[in-house]
C-alpha cells in the first residue's frame, strides 16, 4: 500500500474553473426548479431530479472540495461514510415502509 503518489496540494483548479463550475451549478439548479414547476410527470421528473442532484453533489465534492485532486485517503474516508449511510438508511426506509407496516386485517 504505497501512497507515494498521494501528494497533498496537488494541482488545484484555478479561479476561472471555479467560476465555470459555479455557473454549471446555477444552471442545474435552474433546470431542477423548472422541472418542479413544469408539471413534468413524476416518472420522468423524479429520476431527472435525482440525476441532477447527484451531478451537483459530485461537482461540489470533486472540484470545490478537491476530492478529485487530493489524496485517495480523503476519498476513502468520505466515500466509506457515504456508502454506509446510503446502505443502512435505504434498508431502514424499506423496512419501515414495507416490512411489518400496519398489518390491519
Amino acid at each position: 500500500m504505497s501512497d507515494a503518489d498521494d501528494l497533498e496540494h496537488a494541482d488545484h483548479p484555478d479561479s476561472s474553473q471555479y467560476i465555470v463550475i459555479g455557473i454549471i451549478l446555477a444552471v442545474f439548479t435552474a433546470i431542477e426548479v423548472a422541472i418542479s414547476f413544469a408539471a413534468v410527470p413524476g416518472e420522468i421528473a423524479v429520476p431527472a431530479l435525482i440525476i441532477l442532484t447527484v451531478l451537483k453533489f459530485l461537482l461540489v465534492v470533486m472540484w470545490f472540495m478537491h476530492l478529485r485532486f487530493d489524496s485517495g485517503w480523503f476519498r476513502r474516508l468520505f466515500v466509506f461514510g457515504l456508502g454506509v449511510a446510503l446502505a443502512i438508511y435505504a434498508a431502514t426506509i424499506s423496512l419501515m415502509l414495507y416490512a411489518g407496516a400496519a398489518t390491519q386485517a
Binding site: D3, L7, E8, S71, W73, F74, L77, F78, G81, V84
Partner: peptide, 24 residues
C-alpha cells in the same frame, strides 16, 4: 505517515461521520 495533514484527515473523517447524521 501518510504525508497528509492531521487536521484535513480529521475533517474528512468527520464529514464521513456527518453523512450518517444527515442520512438519519
Amino acid at each position: 505517515s501518510l504525508g497528509l495533514s492531521n487536521e484535513k484527515l480529521a475533517m474528512w473523517t468527520l464529514l464521513g461521520s456527518e453523512c450518517l447524521f444527515f442520512g438519519a
